[in-house]
Design a protein around this nucleic acid. Structure first.
Length: 1003
RNA sequence: GCGAGAUUAGCUCAGUGGUAGAGCAUUCGCUUCACACGCGAGGGGUCGCAGGUUCAAACCCUGCAUCUCGCACCA
């Protein structure tokens, strides 16, 4: 730090050190370095959407991960922070399709066709897909970029296929015609988790239908969706409803469509428990094709299903001429008009109900009957049991700290091994796992992992299919026939072949069943490349659907580490061996079901072990009014702008300070400004150290305990306390607590008191030269400063990686350290340790030292207040008189003088009494007087002291009342009783001080 | 409807039985030789409401109110 700018300038420093770290491969994890003395620490990044750009949410999430990773490195762990992106099926395909449409290249994706569109998306991905990962570097993220993964990498895709085939073989994946959530905008099915309920204002329409068997008798039906009337196939009432019981078994004329003759619109009145008496009219129209509950009713009563909606949400011809071709919402209005015109509408009253929306496309979903692939979740029991519930934790049943390994861990062991922070999310997780529903995993998209299932239509016998496949597989040199997960074959849905061995056996046994053909549909599920090609050649067709993106992300913790599902290979995989299970996962609670829960299940199913030990759930970043950040509100600042303006460290520190565990973060640019100010303060504190360092003073000299002043002892104790607090905060993932401690220790203690007090020990123009003794004290003080600053820089490093690295080198602290212990980079310097008892004894650090310094600073504050209240000229150096309560070394008096900005502090004997009217203040260190001359305004000081006296007396009264209570003295623990007595004494002393001070004021 | 969380200074939050705290904001003063991205001194709180337990409650218990978030959902 030869040229030291007055203010810290982050820009050049940040790029310099990031490049340095990359160049020296500081982020690269090497499993070979893992040992008993160098444990592994790993995090996998929640893969951001490949179309994404950095948001404040990413800043929060990734800063936390970086802090954890950097802290772990300083603790001597081998750290893997594994980055990557996911392919985000719907989002990415949408982005590219839109771009192409905008450019006029296509009107519809069919114009390009599947292969060409997918090629375009890949092109787009190569060009823009890495943006967010680049942006993370600006933030300082210490990811191992050499291991960057993408969910559609070839190796990763293989993992997805293998898992699919395995689950298919196990019968957990099945295809079925079900009611699914259909997104009419994206034209695909969605899982339940991708549907959010939103309150919608609409109408409740009451309309009449006539009972066929009893002309003139009408039923009134209430519905919010009159446009679906043409799809009604029954009218249902509760079997116990006395109003309608007698009508069950009769029929009604369906109200729509009107262009169909009445006789063709007859539907039955059925009785079903699902119908509630008191909702609506107690009569329910049953639309099996367009409502989940109605579909169930339809199944129970074997009702026909009439589908009147196209995939994109338009009415079909079956809805009648009036509605056909209309959008579903237009059709609703139209249906209303038709009913009204026909005179069958009784009323339409405003009504608010909850409607399912596609989370991504933000349009109402349609329940739709379609063929989809479903997964019955594996390893549910273990997954449910492994997460510690809050009550277990408070009962002390859980093992301890972060990342702590427990060798007794066993699969199926009922002891929970994973902890959520905050733990209340464990309840949410448990609840979801309890009522878990099968997962709809197919998506009608082109971008993604295509479902590895092929079908024929029966032109070929099973035996022929076998022969072709066998040849294809034997030709493959890379995958042997013994690889059991490669095949699963079903005929008309029944599992015929479970794996390749089975397949061989069947062929050899000359099974007659193998010659079936014609109407038999052969379904082959395989992850084998050659087999896939072979199937294409012999006329099989691959399922057109792709898999839900989460079906690939749920494998993230091990698929990114080179997992193959070949037990022998995986057992030899050094990365998996060293880094799986990962230590921490940092993510948002909004994807607890989408991702976290599913990763846990995949972890147990495929690794036989949980995927991570601790899950930290961040809050949501909001603006300062508490609104979610959104593009449309324009309240979402660009993190890169903030970094350019304030520096990455400032952004990190500001965000971490504002982000308490488990709470949403109300973000305000002011907090980044505060971060910048903090960095600047740190910068200047180090500058000060450099400026007071004399030519002959060494950097980081030995501290001589004999030369420590009370200030030195005090700051060493404060540092010790800070180290304890920060370290503790880490074990609880309380990062905002850690920043608060660091803020207090560095700014409030080191800068405000220690540095200021130290100025008494260093020369300046006015004070002239020092004695040899003073010189020794000053040099020792430099050593203390270096010790404190060196420790603080290390404590700060996970939060402020750039500025601390710059100062670490600039101050020369890296000089004498071994390369792997901070010599090359602060990243690998050791994490500060609190003093042991021996060290405390060696430095003479005890409560007395602490109290003396503290009392000294208190007295300074009292003196400053006195001066201020008397409205004395702030520029004028005043003379103070001090009557010490005990021994007070000259060095201490020098400090008092400096901190009081006094011309002199004159010591007087215990029997000295001030002149009448001398303002005073005091504490256990002694009595401070401020002899005044000239015209002084004592009014303010009198008012202040009077008020203070009142407060003091109120406190005394409180304590006295307590102590006077016989029950108190009897029941209270001795320690508390003693505390109260001491408190009374303290308050009484203060009372006396204030009283004297008041009396001393001239009248 | 079920469940969870929140409610403490103007704002954002610490504080799980024993003297109500921090940062920011605010007021006032200061070109004090590291830093005005700074320094110093202040003001500001019946701890959401009502009961209860206790010698003692912001903290434990009960009820209520308001807000937020999950889950479920009746047309």
């Amino acid at each position: 730090m030869s040229e030291i700018p007055k203010a810290y300038e982050p820009q050049s420093v940040e790029t310099k050190w990031y490049d340095f770290w990359l160049e020296h491969q500081c982020f690269t994890a090497d499993p070979a370095r893992v040992s008993a003395t160098r444990p592994a620490y790993s995090i996998v990044i929640p893969p951001p959407n490949v179309t994404g750009v950095l948001t404040m949410g990413h800043v929060l999430n990734n800063t936390i991960q970086d802090i954890l990773a950097r802290k772990a490195r300083m603790e001597g762990k081998e750290v893997l922070w594994l980055p990557g992106t996911d392919h985000a099926g719907i989002a990415t395909q949408n982005v590219v399709e839109k771009t192409l449409k905008k450019a006029g290249e296509i009107k519809h994706r069919d114009d390009l066709g599947r292969e060409a569109l997918v090629a375009k998306i890949w092109e787009w991905k190569e060009k823009y897909g890495g943006i967010i990962l680049k942006q993370l570097r600006a933030l300082g993220a210490s990811c191992d970029w050499t291991r960057t993964r993408f969910t559609m990498d070839p190796e990763y895709s293989r993992c997805v296929q293998k898992v699919f085939v395995d689950l298919y073989k196990k019968g957990l994946i099945y295809r079925g015609k079900r009611m699914v959530n259909w997104c009419p905008a994206s034209l695909t099915a969605l899982s339940d988790e991708e549907v959010v309920m939103k309150e919608q204002k609409g109408f409740m329409y009451h309309f009449r239908v006539e009972v066929v068997e009893l002309p003139g008798t009408f039923l009134t039906i209430a519905t919010t969706r009159p446009e679906t009337i043409p799809a009604d196939t029954a009218v249902a009432v509760n079997p116990n409803d006395p109003r309608y019981q007698h009508l069950v078994g009769n029929h009604v004329y369906r109200a729509l469509p009107l262009d169909v003759p009445k006789e063709q619109r007859i539907i039955p009145i059925i009785a079903d428990e699902h119908v509630t008496f008191d909702f609506g009219t107690g009569v329910l129209k049953v639309t099996p094709a367009h409502d989940k509950a109605d579909y169930e009713i339809g199944l129970r009563h074997k009702l026909p299903v009439i589908d009147i909606l196209t995939p994109d949400g338009k009415m079909t011809a079956e809805a009648g001429v009036d509605l056909a071709g209309l959008d579903r919402f237009v059709a609703r209005k139209k249906a209303h008009e038709i009913l009204e015109a026909a005179g069958t509408l009784e009323k339409a009253e405003p009504y608010v109900n909850n409607v399912g929306f596609s989370e991504r496309a933000d349009v109402p979903i349609e329940p739709r009957l379609s063929e989809q692939w479903f997964l019955k979740y594996p390893s549910v029991e273990e997954s449910k049991a492994c997460v510690a519930q809050p009550e277990e934790r408070s009962a002390g049943l859980r093992p301890g700290a972060v990342g702590e390994m427990d060798d007794s861990r066993r699969i199926g062991d009922r002891r929970s091994e994973m902890r959520f922070y905050p733990d209340r999310w464990a309840k949410v997780y448990d609840h979801w796992m309890t009522g878990i529903q099968d997962w709809c995993i197919s998506r009608q998209l082109w971008w993604g992992h295509r479902i590895p299932v092929w079908q024929n239509s029966g032109e070929m016998s099973l035996r022929e299919v076998y022969r072709h496949l066998l040849t294809a597989v034997l030709e493959a040199d890379n995958y042997g026939i013994e690889n059991q997960a490669e095949f699963s074959i079903r005929v008309d849905g029944s599992l015929i072949v479970t794996d390749a061995n089975d397949f061989l056996g069947k062929i050899e046994s000359d099974d007659k069943a193998l010659d079936v053909r014609d109407f038999h549909q052969v379904t082959v599920c395989t992850a084998h490349e050659n087999a896939a090609a072979c199937l294409e050649n012999i006329g099989f067709t691959q399922d057109p659907d792709v898999l839900d993106t989460w079906f690939s992300s749920w494998l993230w913790p091990f698929a990114t580490m080179g997992w193959t599902d070949d037990k022998a290979t995986d057992a030899k995989n050094p990365t998996l061996k060293a880094f799986y299970p990962t230590t921490d996962l940092v993510t948002g609670p909004d994807i607890i079901f989408f991702w976290v829960a599913r990763m846990i299940m995949a972890g147990y199913e495929y690794m036989g072990d949980l995927p991570f030990r601790n899950v930290y759930f961040t809050g949501i970043i909001r603006d300062k009014q508490g609104r979610k950040m959104s593009k449309s509100l324009g309240n979402s600042p660009d993190p890169l702008d903030l970094i350019a303006k304030y520096g990455a460290d400032a952004l990190r520190f500001g965000v971490m300070r504002a982000a308490p565990l488990g709470q949403d973060v109300l973000f305000d640019e002011q907090s980044v400004e505060l971060g910048r100010n903090f960095c600047n303060k740190l910068w200047n504190a180090c500058r000060f150290r450099q400026m007071v360092g004399t030519a002959d003073s060494v950097i980081e000299g030995e501290i001589n305990p004999a030369l420590l002043t009370s200030d030195d002892q005090w700051i060493l104790l404060r540092l010790d306390q800070a180290i304890r607090e920060v370290t503790q905060a880490f074990t609880e993932y309380k990062f905002s607590d850690a920043t608060a401690t660091l803020y207090r220790c560095f700014w409030g203690e080191y800068c405000d008191w220690y540095v200021e007090a130290s100025k008494a020990a260093f020369p300046n123009a006015e004070r002239g030269t020092r004695s040899a003794e003073q010189e020794r004290l000053a040099v020792n003080k430099l050593a203390v400063m270096d010790f404190v600053l060196g420790n603080l820089l290390r404590l700060f490093h996970p939060f402020l990686p750039f500025i601390t690295e710059e100062l670490w080198h600039g101050m020369g602290y890296a000089q004498d350290l071994p390369d792997d212990r901070g010599g090359k980079t602060l990243m690998f310097a050791t994490w500060p340790k609190a003093f042991s008892d021996d060290e405390k004894a060696y430095f003479g650090l005890d409560e007395t030292a602490d109290r003396v310094a503290q009392a000294k600073y208190d007295l300074v504050s009292l003196g400053r207040t006195l001066r201020r209240e008397l409205k004395l000229d702030p520029a004028k150096k005043l003379k103070f008189i001090l009557k010490p309560a005990g021994e007070l070394p000259p060095a201490e008096v020098e400090v008092l003088k400096l901190l009081l900005n006094a011309e002199a502090v004159e010591l007087v004997a215990p029997d000295w009494t001030p002149a009448k009217g001398t303002p005073s203040a005091g504490n256990l260190l002694g009595e401070l007087y401020l002899p005044t001359t000239g015209l002084i305004d004592f009014g303010a000081e009198r008012a202040r002291l009077t008020k203070e006296l009142e407060t003091i007396r109120a406190e005394i009264a409180k304590v006295e009342t307590k102590l006077a209570n016989p029950a108190f003295a009897q029941k209270v623990p001795a320690k508390v009783l003693e505390e109260h007595r001491q408190r009374l004494v303290d308050w009484q002393a203060k009372e006396k001080q204030a009283q004297t001070g008041l009396e001393n004021l001239p009248t």
